[in-house]
Write a protein that binds this DNA or RNA. Structure first.
Lengths: 340, 340
DNA sequence: AGAGTCTTCCAAAGCGCTTTGGCGCTCCCG
DNA sequence: CGGGAGCGCCAAAGCGCTTTGGAAGACTCT
């Protein structure tokens, strides 16, 4: 059932039917009703390929998915996706994932824009001076960055959480509790979020005349194993930290295991605070010692990004407004005063 | 740069240029070379919307993403996606995720097929007599089911792992080690994989004249918390199991925590085997007591599904062939002879 | 009553590609 | 040298929608 058939059976022109369906004003309400009714009754659905060809609108938002046998999409992605999908569903948007070589995502961004495959794109896990952000903003397609890229000489729209503030708060609390030797087990420090977190910790320490020791910061992919290794390394050195801030719940699992292996306890020997992106399947309150966290739902962020993307597509949002969400510091049993 | 412009500047017809580019035989090799060269030099890329309108081919594979505020996409999805993306990338396929109400995915499948939005779809987490499978197969779009749906009165193409065999092997090993009271901490038993796993365990027990006790099987969403709760419940009852088979590594985390909370040890008081889908961020060998697992890479499955989908789109694969992959049983420190 | 203004609808021209049907040319063979 | 076969190419017709540029009819106003 296409426009032609439908208009023919209504004894109207395709123009009128199209306009009636798309809410254009120059059609009689009575006629519109008739058309809409008939369309519904015959299950007419405009062919999106044709519509796209004519309008350029696709009803899709794009994301370039970094892939490669050595590349791991991390589990945060799925939570973000849940939120994004949730919003997208209610607005009839689809999401197209274009897999790309992790080291060359730009070609793919170019392609999907040149091909007008999507109405908007988002970018995640940005790094400082991120070339994708630069590229996409010159390409002139609506976009939102989830996170931030520093050092760019132009503004761009983003939604980020206050990573620096969160880790500043966490570190400040630890310092207030008397800790003098803090360590940071961070994510990949080529990513902005990790840099911001480190900055937050350093700033808090500096406020009390302390520093983050040379060997007291680790930047690794956020796996349980890396959390374990980092913690072992930190805790076995002579000036072992008495408190650790950790960038992920998954890494924190490894930290807890290391602590146990070394015969230490939390929070007796070590205070621990981790960042919690709010996974349904792993909760900080369920750690053997309930884990203090800086908490921010990545799922909500996904929904927000989708919302802004939709607004931009509709022309309701413009400009380079960046928003930074505050992060909750949730104190649980894993922190205590410094030992000794 | 479109076909018209390109053909004009080559002083050829659009037809010839199109054919040259698409590898049709009726064009002189010399001409073809010229055309391809010019296309490359001018960065010509056929407009996919137009091509789609003309051919019906989209170069995309579809997936209906169940969403809803109460619906959690589980982290397995992201690993599957990695594999799928990996293959898709090398074959210039994109993936479109259409979010849908988790309770009504069929409408969305209908839509994407009717709209010819994608060349093929896949279905995951199938249940017995899954209506999506029935629907999609009548819709006549190429598809692959990741997993299996039992009780359908027709065949369909799927790629699954031998869940029954895996848990049969696991349970058999435990029985051989002298365990008489086994328990199963399973995933949601509305899904086929969980049913198959339970069947595997029961079959192994039956072979030795044993049964899976009434209170010895739990079916829950695969979260750490549920693993913990299930394990507590099992271990605190009077006829507590001496061995547990567990459907997920994440749940196993909870089991381990419960065991510790109860002052028990693995494998002294309890033997534990879990299914490992092979996450890069959580490895069974890194559990405090290295975890025995039934192992099967869900990532590889993703790549395989993509491969079959591509083959079907190209008309290289037909029929309802189902493939069932064997699962490795990897024995580590978490199993031992039955206590007492 | 005639002119002007809306209102409501239509025919037709794209959007950029593929594909059908056919045409002219060369080549080979009897 | 004439005719049939192939080769290489082209013009034009879609694919199904939106949108431009009217046009016919109804209505208002003077």
């Amino acid at each position: 059932m296409n426009l032609k058939q439908l208009s023919h059976m209504l004894a109207l022109s395709q123009t009128t039917v199209s306009r009636a369906l798309n809410g254009y004003p120059e059609v009689n309400e009575e006629t519109r009703r008739r058309v809409i009714d008939a369309a519904k009754r015959h299950g007419y659905r405009p062919n999106p390929s044709a519509r796209r060809l004519a309008t350029g609108k696709t009803g899709m938002i794009g994301y370039v998915l970094p892939t490669g046998t050595t590349v791991d999409i991390d589990p945060h992605f799925v939570e973000f996706l849940s939120g994004l999908g949730d919003y997208a569903r209610s607005h009839e948007l689809d999401l197209v994932l274009s897999p790309a070589d992790a080291d060359d995502q730009e070609t793919t961004y170019r392609r999907i824009v040149a091909n007008r495959q999507v109405d908007a794109v988002y970018i995640s896990s940005p790094r400082p001076v991120d070339r994708r952000v630069a590229l996409v903003s010159t390409l002139g397609i609506p976009f939102i960055v989830h996170g931030r890229s520093d050092g760019l000489d132009f503004d761009y729209p983003f939604t980020d959480i206050d990573n620096e503030g969160a880790f500043h708060e966490a570190a400040r609390l630890l310092v207030q509790l008397g800790h003098r030797r803090l360590a940071l087990i961070n994510g990949d420090d080529r990513e902005t979020f990790a840099i911001h977190r480190e900055r937050g910790v350093r700033r808090a320490l500096a406020a009390s005349g302390l520093v983050l020791g040379e060997g007291h910061v680790c930047s690794l992919a956020m796996t349980e194993e890396n959390g374990y290794r980092a913690a072992r390394r930190l805790l076995e050195q002579s000036d072992a930290p008495t408190a650790i801030a950790c960038s992920s719940l998954i890494m924190a699992l490894g930290v807890v295991r290391a602590v146990r292996d070394l015969g230490l306890t939390i929070p007796g020997d070590l205070s621990l605070i981790a960042h919690d992106d709010v996974f349904p399947w792993l909760k900080p309150e369920n750690f053997s010692v309930p884990l203090s966290t800086t908490r921010s739902s990545i799922r909500l962020a996904g929904a927000r990004v989708a919302e802004r993307l939709a607004a931009r597509i509709a022309g309701l949002e413009e400009g380079a407004r960046g928003e930074v969400w505050p992060v909750d510091l949730v104190v649980r049993g894993s922190v205590a005063g410094a030992p000794g």
